[in-house]
């Protein structure tokens, strides 16, 4: 393994960025997640948010919390020195064990209108697309774009697809979509250019729970094919559970 390096830089006066590399891969993402986890587990007063992404971690802070009375060092410099010290101690190598999360998916049909097109483009049968997608080892690299919206790496190369030329205006909640080397689950009804292959009956963003989402960075995700009848049964069960909570 190459010697671990990082780059600390400001993003304006209230955010510090740590960058671990310029390429999206498991190792780089793992380091970003490990640092973010450490900073969440060892909170600093004045740090308001820690946001891991594919290859970086953002530390959002209130500058006044890092101001020196004498005022020689900038708040940014004091926070950067702390983060540097944490990294020197090697926390970026202490990746936690992943949680395993199963996501039932009803593939194709009205839920996955692009499944057949993906199959044609990749010279596969639709069933093969489902088999490959549901048997690949997926891992959540980051959440972003919308509340609880996961970017899930580990898409088999046989399913590599570009984004659609024209984005759809409205993608329903729970839709599973693929593009590039990744899968996503739509957690908010939004426009999007990914290829829609199925839908889960699970609620992926749940503001009433803490944390407010089913998936977290680092989770190992297993997509499990279900039938339309199973999809409907699980939707009903979900609504009953929600009604009970309310």
């Amino acid at each position: 393994m190459a010697k671990a390096t990082w780059r600390i830089a400001p993003q304006g006066d209230s955010c510090l960025m740590v960058e671990f590399g310029q390429k999206i891969d498991r190792e780089t993402n793992l380091r970003a997640r490990a640092l973010a986890q450490y900073l969440v587990d060892h909170p600093l007063s004045g740090v308001v948010d820690v946001v891991p992404a594919f290859t970086s971690v953002a530390v959002h802070y209130r500058p006044e919390a890092f101001a020196e009375p004498a005022g020689t060092a900038l708040p940014y410099e004091r926070l950067a020195a702390h983060v540097e010290q944490v990294l020197q101690a090697g926390v970026e190598r202490q990746a936690p064990e992943p949680r395993h999360v199963e996501i039932p998916v009803c593939y194709g049909g009205e839920f996955g209108p692009d499944l057949e097109e993906v199959a044609r483009a990749r010279k596969l049968a639709p069933d093969e697309v489902v088999a490959i997608h549901s048997q690949s080892p997926h891992i959540v690299y980051m959440l972003g774009f919308a509340p609880g919206f996961p970017y899930i790496a580990g898409l088999d190369e046989r399913l590599a697809m570009p984004r659609r030329a024209t984005p759809r205006l409205k993608i329903p909640l729970g839709t599973i979509a693929i593009a590039g080397g990744q899968s996503v689950v739509y957690t908010l009804e939004t426009p999007g250019g990914w290829n829609l292959i199925g839908r889960t009956p699970l609620r992926v963003f749940t503001p009433e729970t803490d944390p407010p989402c089913l998936l977290r960075p680092g989770d190992a995700v297993h997509f499990v094919p279900i039938t339309l009848a199973q999809y409907k049964a699980q939707c009903d069960a979900g609504q009953d559970a929600a009604a009970e909570r309310a």
Partner: peptide, 10 residues
């Protein structure tokens, strides 16, 4: 560009 955090005023 690889997606990364943005903030108020970016």
């Amino acid at each position: 560009m690889i997606s990364e955090a943005v903030t108020f005023g970016t």
